[in-house]
């Protein structure tokens, strides 16, 4: 589904990703672990083509097609979704309006307003989001936890092929992490994939993690199975440091 080859990305003058390669197949759940500043968020943003991040070398393929020349919204329409670490506040646009517009853009179908409304409320109930929030402005005045649940609401509404989750669990209390985690579990099936950045093993509890990678200084220094997550939480990243 996703294939990244020797990716080099710079932001401003700084090279952040330095030859990163990653392969994610349908049905897989990958976890990316790494200390702050190792390039995790840059990777997520680069996959979606954030204009601030310049790909200087390497390629990103999605379902066999090279994404490099595509704009962000074209990548999203192909089925890539990013749950933001810090979701933007957008005054004047309601959650429902935004989600309906997105769904229409991604599917290309005309959305039936009433039916959409019903489905949205059902999903909100599952994620324990107050139904009034459908009419509130996007993330404006939301708590950190509410913003993250709103991201999962978007994930479930848009139902992409590849979900990138950038620290969706950070800043959440135990119960909220549980809600987010079961939201991701609901989304996941054998046809789609997840790439999850986390510092916290708890979000992975309900998820059948297939791969884990350690990202240090812009490169993946070690890949393995779910067991890597445990190793990192016990012993930290120092063991993986590579001396140049």
């Amino acid at each position: 589904m996703l294939e990244i080859e020797n990716l080099h990305v710079r932001a401003g003058d700084k090279e952040i990703l330095r030859g990163l390669s990653l392969k994610v197949a349908a049905g897989e759940i990958h976890v990316i672990l790494g200390p702050n500043g190792s390039g995790k968020s840059t990777l997520m943003n680069a996959i979606l083509g954030h204009p601030k991040y310049e790909v200087t070398d390497g390629k990103i393929f999605f379902e066999g097609d090279d994404l490099t020349a595509l704009k962000t919204f074209e990548r999203a329409r192909r089925g890539i979704f990013l749950s933001f670490q810090n979701p933007e506040e957008i005054p004047g646009i309601t959650v429902e309006n935004m989600l309906r517009t997105s769904k229409q853009a991604v599917t290309g179908d005309k959305i039936k307003i009433l039916q959409f409304h019903k489905e949205l409320l059902a999903l909100m109930k599952e994620l324990q989001i107050n139904p009034e929030y459908a009419g509130r402005y996007m993330n404006v005045g939301f708590s950190g936890g509410e913003k993250k649940r709103n991201e999962i609401l978007q994930l479930l509404t848009l139902n992409p092929k590849l979900a990138l989750l950038d620290e969706t669990d950070s800043g959440l209390d135990v119960d909220a992490v549980e809600i987010v985690s079961s939201g991701v579990a609901k989304f996941h099936n054998e046809k789609n994939s997840c790439v999850i950045i986390t510092h916290n093993a708890q979000i992975l509890k309900h998820l059948p993690v297939t791969h884990a990678h350690i990202l240090l200084n812009g490169r993946i220094v070690k890949s393995g199975g779910a067991e890597l997550v445990g190793e990192v939480s016990e012993r930290g990243y120092a063991q993986f440091e590579v001396t140049p």
Binding site: H50, F73, A76, L82, I90, T101, S102, Q154
Partner: peptide, 10 residues
């Protein structure tokens, strides 16, 4: 960028 990441054109 946030809106574009949801499939909405620039």
């Amino acid at each position: 960028f946030y809106l574009m990441a949801r499939g909405i054109s620039e």
